[in-house]
Amino acid sequence: MSKEDEFTRVIKENEGVIFKITTVYTDQPEDQQDLYQEIVYQLWKAYGSFRGDAKVSTWMYRVALNTAITRLKKEKRKGNRVGIDQVVLKQTENYDIEFEEKLKILYAHIKMLSDLEKGLILLVLEGKKYEEISLITGLTPTNVGTRISRIKQKLKTQIVEE
């Protein structure tokens, strides 16, 4: 299997994860499309240096989250976008209204957090253990724990204030 084939397989297997990350870090559909493409591009760039010493998912989360936090905001949107609006943005069209509403609330709560907190809660929701979160984020497992309990507290306060 060529490098290109392997890469496209990894992306296809994880497209849902990329979609969720882009949803958490952007507000506008256009920004989401830009970020989605940027993440795929950065993953492609980093794929050559991926030595397989970490899990593919750990590597992918690291690159994707790093791309999301460093993306230059307010850039002029130039150039063509590959038609991924059909691919990613309408993935929620089959959901029922109640679920869609819950989803909106969930994303709204996450978006109120800081960039670092967004990444942490996203990894918690993805079911990652503290050790893996520590590998991705570079924080110590104890620090991950402390920060996550602080985020939980923050989320509770947000919910009470609503």
Binding site: Q42, K45, A46, S49, F50, W59, R62, V63, L65, N66, T67, I69, T70, L116, G119, L135, I136, T137, G138, L139
Partner: peptide, 9 residues
């Protein structure tokens, strides 16, 4: 993006 952790980035 690959060599640096989320925190370092």
């Amino acid at each position: 993006f690959y060599e640096n952790s989320y925190r370092d980035t």
